[in-house]
Every structure is written in C-alpha cells, then in structure tokens.
Design a protein around this nucleic acid. Sequence first.
DNA 1: TAGTTTTTGTGATATATTTCACAAAAGCTA
DNA 2: TAGCTTTTGTGAAATATATCACAAAAACTA
Lengths: 225, 225
Amino acid sequence: MSNNCKTCVFKSKATQTLGDENLDQLSCNNATVDFRKGDSIIKQGMFSTNVVYLRSGLAKIHITGPYHEQIVRIVKAPCYLGLPTTIGDKINQYSITAIKDVEVCFIDFNAFRRLLQETEHFSYEIILELCRNELDAIRRCANRTQKQTRGNIADVILEFANNIFESDVFTLPVSQSEIGNLVDASRESISRTLAEFHKDGIIKFSGKKIEILNKKSLLLISQTG
Amino acid sequence: MSNNCKTCVFKSKATQTLGDENLDQLSCNNATVDFRKGDSIIKQGMFSTNVVYLRSGLAKIHITGPYHEQIVRIVKAPCYLGLPTTIGDKINQYSITAIKDVEVCFIDFNAFRRLLQETEHFSYEIILELCRNELDAIRRCANRTQKQTRGNIADVILEFANNIFESDVFTLPVSQSEIGNLVDASRESISRTLAEFHKDGIIKFSGKKIEILNKKSLLLISQTG
DNA sequence: TAGTTTTTGTGATATATTTCACAAAAGCTA
DNA sequence: TAGCTTTTGTGAAATATATCACAAAAACTA
C-alpha cells in the first residue's frame, strides 16, 4: 500500500520541517506495511535498503550478543527504526521485532538521502535524533551494568508506566524471559523479583498485568537497589 | 594559540571534504590547547560551547553512573570529542579526560554549524560518524554486559594492541582500577585476572607493561570466557 | 633521599545471581 | 474441550565476583 507523507498524521519531527514539495519527494516509492505481534521488521545481518518508520505500535530493538539475545530497548511509535544502519554501514547491526501489532512505513532511501543533503532543517533534525540516540545508548548502558536486578526491574516497570503506556496500570508486552534479556538477568530472577515486589506491596501483578501501587518505593529501588 | 584548519595535518574525514574557503570559515575563532595526562577536557554537567577535536593523544570518555564512575571507551586522536552534546542538548552528558598528553582544538560552534547546514558532504560525513558511534555504543554494551571479567579483560588487551597502540607490546595508559571501570569489575578482579593470564603464559606483564604472548588464546577467551 | 600517596597483590569471606530441575499455570490450536 | 506448547513459580546447589583487610610495591614530591 503506497502512502502519502503529506497527509500522514504520524510525522516525525524532521518530516514536520518539510514543505509539500519535499513531502511529495519523500512519498514517491514508499509503502506502508502492517506487522503482527512477533513479526520481524528488521533482521540483524541483512542488507538495509529502506528508511523504516514506525507509524504506530510497539517494537523491540534486539541484538545477538556473544552469549544470548539482548534487548537494547523497547520503542514506541512514532519513530525511525534502524536509522544508523540505513544511513551508515547498510548491514543491520540489530534486529527489530514487533511486540504489538504495528504499522510501518518503508521510505525510499534515495529520496530520503536527497532530502538530507538538500534540506538543511530536515538534516539537522536527523542529526539531533542521532545525537540523542547515542547519548541514550551510553546512559542506558551505564545504568544497566551498574545497577543490580532489583533496580533494573524497577526501572523497566517505571519506563513502561511513564514513557510507553503513560499509565500505572498496564499489561506487559513481553515475557519475563524477554525482560531478562532487557536487564541482563535470568528469567528466574525476573520471576522472583516481581513476586518480591508484589509481596512487598509495591506492585500488584498477576499474569502479565501490572499495577504500580507504590511509585515512590519503585523509584527508591531504582536508585538504591 | 589560534590555529589554521587549512594547514592542519590531523584533518577529520568530514573536514577533508572541505575546500579552502570553508576551511578558513572553520578556522576563525578556534584555538588549540595542550592538556597534560589527567587533565579534564570535557566535564559532565557543564555547558558545551565548542566543538572539541582531539588532534593528538589519548583520552577516556567516562560517565558518572548510579554507583560509580564508568569508562565508556578510550579514544585515540584524531577524532571529535563529545559531538552529540555539542550539537545536541548542550549539557555534557559525560566527561572526557586526557590519559596521555594531548593536543585539542576548540572549534567555534557557529562556524561548525554553518558548515553543517551549508555543505552537504561535510554534514553527511558527520552524520555517518554519529551513526557509527551509536552502533558502536550498542555493540560495546551488549559485549560488556554478557561477557564475564576474563572475556572483557581479554577484549581490552586486544583493543589496546590492535586499535590503540597497534603493537603487541605496550604500556597500559590507565590504572587497574580504571580498567575495572571500563569492564565493570572490581580493581581486585583485574589484578587477579591479569596475574592469571601471566601465569598461563598468555601475556607477560609487570608494572604497566604488557606483552601479548598468545594472541589466539586471548581471542578465544574473549569469545568463550 | 626521605616521606607520603597511590597503586597493586592476594587471602578469606560474603553475596547476588545463575543454573538445574520439576511442577503448575496459561495460552494455543485442532 | 482435549492435548500440546510456552510461560511462570520456586526450591536447592553451584559459582563468579565483590568486598574487606592488609602488606608490598611503585610513583610522586618536597
């Protein structure tokens, strides 16, 4: 299904800087595709030919590490996916998989690149996004490696509540084993820690449903372990 | 000391795309400063006003994590320092400290930004650099968190030999405690592991001098622990 | 050179977390 | 609904690494 950027209601910050003419340029040869939960959108090791834009839904960025799969982060639409490899070295350095049904727009790279070179506001917004991403990656890494499991799980719960679902009641979009891959802990440790939080009255959780009962405690655990 | 980009022998890939006129633009208002080993070049939390370019020497990028200082990576000239904060959010998100005597060029941000907007080849090179940095950060993180101490230390030794000093005999530019901050391990673990590698005939080391005796073993340890 | 500070080496102990193993629960699917 | 697969819960044992403690060595510095 071809799609028109001019009328798209999920424009990125960069795309918002563009006039109608440039938006038409960007629209030519692009396609919108739906993915189901679990579908792979970008696959590590494969050639990246299109700029990928997540219009709606949730996805996980994950990388095959030396010993096991690691989830780098969970991203929420709207945002670009895998920009550094599409622009950069062309071979995807990580995979991206839908964790909810998503709508993805594949944008012609040549059109995108032309805009990057000819439209300074657009290119500057992309530069800012790349800057943010690098800093985010560094900060996340320092956090994850220094905190222990309790703190990291508290973080993940807070991130889901504050940034992803914007509610203190939500349904985990991933399994406990995936949370393990997100915070570098075993599946069993996730289970135990979640049970502990429940027992301590910090969260209420059954199945995949989580309700935050004591956000202050979570924050404290996130900061002090 | 003011400095002329036109005659600079340490040009970045991006700067190499520029003609004389643009190089003159970049040169106006810039300054070259020498730092001694241990001097702070960029300080986390402070306002970033200039583009910082490492002309010669070695520096460590480090971030104050939730529990202790963490070294993100060690960088070798020539390269830009702290680009994502200078361009991006302006408040330095990490510190950079000289670990050998270095020569640093402070470039006027407005001149740099003007080039970024007006000179497409230059801006594209900067974009590529930002892409590489983000991917590098993600890869490093997956590696460090998944491997255990032996593997990480093997990695560090190999990186020093292959990328920093380009020799199998070198002098560690950092203390064991700093290596600990680089691989998320205690100072004591570094000492013990280095001693173990020595005992096993994989490296020869006394004081800060390291000589790699069995690179194959190091590689194997880096891959399998 | 003497005196001070920083860095390193190494044992003993403590501990967070993994791993293994199996049962129970939940989610699919035919 | 029955039967299969995946996910989750939880105990017990194993383990990598941190922490503590102190001595020795090396690196400064006055």
